[in-house]
Amino acid sequence: MSSDCLGCKLANGEVITHVIYEDEVITCFLDIAPMNEGHLLLLPKKHYLDLDELDDITAAAILKASSKLSKIIKDIYKPDGVTIIQNGGKFNDLQHYHMHVFPRYEADGFAWVEPEDKNNNKNRLEETKERILNHIKKNNFEIKEVKVLIPEELSELLTESAEEGFRHIHRLINDYIAGINKFNNEGEALFECRVNNRVIGICGLNQDPYFGEGIGRVRRLYIMKEFRRHGIGRKMTEAVINKAKKHYRKLLLKTDNPVAGEFYKTLGFEEIMNEEKMTHCLVLI
């Protein structure tokens, strides 16, 4: 709660309002300048400015309450519709997240004014779609260490990597199923990247089988083509590096792909020449 925020004071009962509903997370009360009778404001008790700042519990509480209150408004006022809106950033006059819920009637004076469309946005919808989707691909992903691999979930990676002429995902799956390499020894790990619960990338860390103790090896990195150039491969490799720092002095890898080789250099790996079992090395300590 912010001591100088009017929204915090309203939501926490420090300013008198006409409260309709309250729980431990949110407060709902009548707007003092209603668009129509029954105009409600929903505020979280904790201080937030915009929708994207809300924690999951608060967001769920607001959505649940707005649904129930909309039904109540319909039952009491029999409106032509219900409008639910909220303004963010500079347009949030309260500087505290709040949602408006109010009944609507034909010719009640509230209007959504169609813009002049000076930027020709209506004819650029495909471009807009691609811009938003690309941003989602770049940012809406989760990388986590997996303890149990489900081979069936790698079907897209397997198909696409084979089409590109790579066999390392096929080998990863076969070795895992056969128990040859489950990435479960001390200092080992397997990381998946998911977008909307779809596995779109993978990378592993093994004890190095060639150069003795204290050496780790990056294994089986692959990112699906449509998700490349969004920093996912870098973040997956960084996850492996951070894990390796806890167990190894050096981290090695082998690649015959020049583009991949340059990528690893940007992460601090040094190119090693004339060595059969490795092409790059990163000193960790």
Rank of each mutant, 00 (worst) to 15 (best):
N184M: 11
H135G: 05
H168V: 01
L157N: 07
L172Q: 11
Y176G: 02
M236I: 07
N181Q: 15
L149D: 08
L158G: 00
A189Q: 12
Q207P: 11
L154H: 07
K235Q: 11
G204W: 07
I136S: 04
F211A: 14
G231Y: 00
I173N: 05
R194M: 13
N140C: 15
N185W: 10
F227N: 13
E192P: 00
N134T: 02
K144M: 10
Y176K: 10
N206P: 04
I169W: 08
V146K: 10
N174M: 00
I232H: 12
N174K: 12
R228S: 09
H170K: 13
G214N: 11
N134Y: 00
L154Q: 04
R219A: 08
E226H: 09
H135Q: 12
S161H: 05
H230Y: 03
N196H: 09
R228Q: 13
M236N: 03
H135C: 05
R167Y: 06
E226M: 10
R171D: 04
I136E: 02
G233S: 00
K147M: 07
V195W: 04
L158P: 02
G204N: 01
R198F: 14
V148I: 11
K137T: 07
I150R: 04
M224T: 12
L149S: 08
A162V: 10
A189G: 12
G233A: 00
E186F: 10
V218G: 04
L205I: 03
F191C: 09
L157S: 06
F166H: 04
